Amino acid sequence: MRWVTFDCYGTLVDWRHGIHTSAELIAPGQGARLLEAYNRHEHAVQSESPGLRYRQVLAEALRRACAEEKVESAGDNASVLAATLPYWPVFPEVGAELSALRAAGWKLALLTNCDRDLIAETRRRLPVPFEAVVTAEDAGAYKPDLAHFELFRRSYEPEVWVHVAQSYFHDMIPAHRLGLPRVWINRLGEAAPDPAIIQRVLSDLRGLLAAVEDR
C-alpha cells in the first residue's frame, strides 16, 4: 500500500488568496496587512488551545490580526474566514498532478489542521478523490504536533509513505522527525532554516510524481 499524504491549505488550496480576499470583505484595502498579521497569530492560538475547533482558531486569529493592525472589526466579522473557506481556490496544477499519482497506483490522504465539516466542503472542490483524511478534530492537536501522522500510521499502516506539503514548520519538521520521505512544495520561495530537513523541493506540484517515486 503506497500512500502520499498532503497538507491541504497552502499545498492544494490557495490559503493566502483565501485569507487575503476574505479579509477584504470586512476591511477593504486591508487584506494584505491582515493576511500577514493572521500568519503571526494562528499558531499561537492553536498552541494555547489545542482542542479549539479550527473555525474558532480562524476567528480568534483574525480578531488578533485586526487588533494588531488597528483595523476595526465589529460583530461577527471574524467568522468570515470559516464562511468563505469552502470557496478558496484550488491551485491550477493540482488536478493533473494528483491524477498522475493515482494512475501510478498511489493512494492519497489529507493530514489537515482543519475540522471535519470544513474539509468536507473543500473536498467537493478538489479535482480527485482522497482515500483518507485526518483532521485536527480527529487528532486532538494541531501540526506540527505528531498526532496527525501517528493517527494516520495506526489507522492505515502504510507500507510506503511520502508526505507532501507547503509548510516547512507545520509539515516538513514533523515528517523529518518521523523519518518520512518528504517533498516540500515551496510556493513562496522560502529559505529553509535547516536545509538538512529538506529532501525534495518543488515550486508547485508540477513534477510531483517523479519526486515522490525518487524518494
Rank of each mutant, 00 (worst) to 15 (best):
F152Q: 02
P28R: 04
A65F: 07
L98D: 07
L25Q: 14
L118T: 12
K143W: 08
P195W: 15
F130E: 02
R124E: 07
A196N: 05
A211G: 06
E72A: 07
G95T: 00
R153D: 04
N113W: 15
L208R: 06
L98C: 10
H148G: 00
L202W: 15
G31K: 05
G140H: 13
L126W: 09
P129F: 00
D171R: 02
Y142L: 01
L180R: 00
Q199F: 15
G105P: 13
Y87P: 00
H163A: 01
E48S: 03
A139K: 02
V134E: 05
W15Y: 15
G31F: 15
A211H: 09
E159P: 08
Q30T: 00
H41C: 03
L34Q: 04
L52V: 09
T21D: 10
N77R: 02
C8I: 03
R53W: 14
R55F: 14
I197G: 01
L208E: 04
I197K: 05
R2K: 10
I185W: 15
F130P: 05
A65P: 10
R2G: 05
P174G: 05
D115L: 10
E190V: 03
S203I: 08
I119M: 08
I185C: 04
A83Q: 13
A100D: 09
Q30C: 09
H170N: 12
P28W: 03
E97P: 14
V94A: 07
G95E: 10
Q56K: 06
A74L: 06
H43P: 08
R153N: 01
S203H: 12
L111A: 06
A83E: 14
C114T: 13
E68A: 07
S22D: 11
W106L: 03
L52N: 04
P158Q: 06
R53I: 08
L209V: 01
L110F: 13
L12Q: 05
P158S: 02
T11Y: 10
G207L: 04
N186M: 05
P144Q: 00
D115V: 06
H43E: 10
S99G: 14
I198E: 06
V164Q: 03
N77V: 00
Y87Q: 12
P144A: 00
H41M: 02
D115M: 11
A67H: 11
Y54F: 15
L35C: 03
G10E: 12
Q56F: 13
A120Q: 12
D14V: 10
R102Y: 15
V128Y: 08
R53K: 08
L81R: 02
E150A: 04
V45S: 05
Q46E: 14
R33C: 01
L34G: 02
A44C: 02
E131I: 01
V183P: 10
R187T: 03
P28K: 00
A210D: 11
D194V: 09
A44L: 10
F149V: 01
I119F: 13
R53Y: 13
F169M: 01
T21A: 07
L110S: 03
D145S: 11
R63S: 04
V57I: 09
Q30D: 05
F91E: 02
L52Q: 12
L209K: 06
D117E: 15
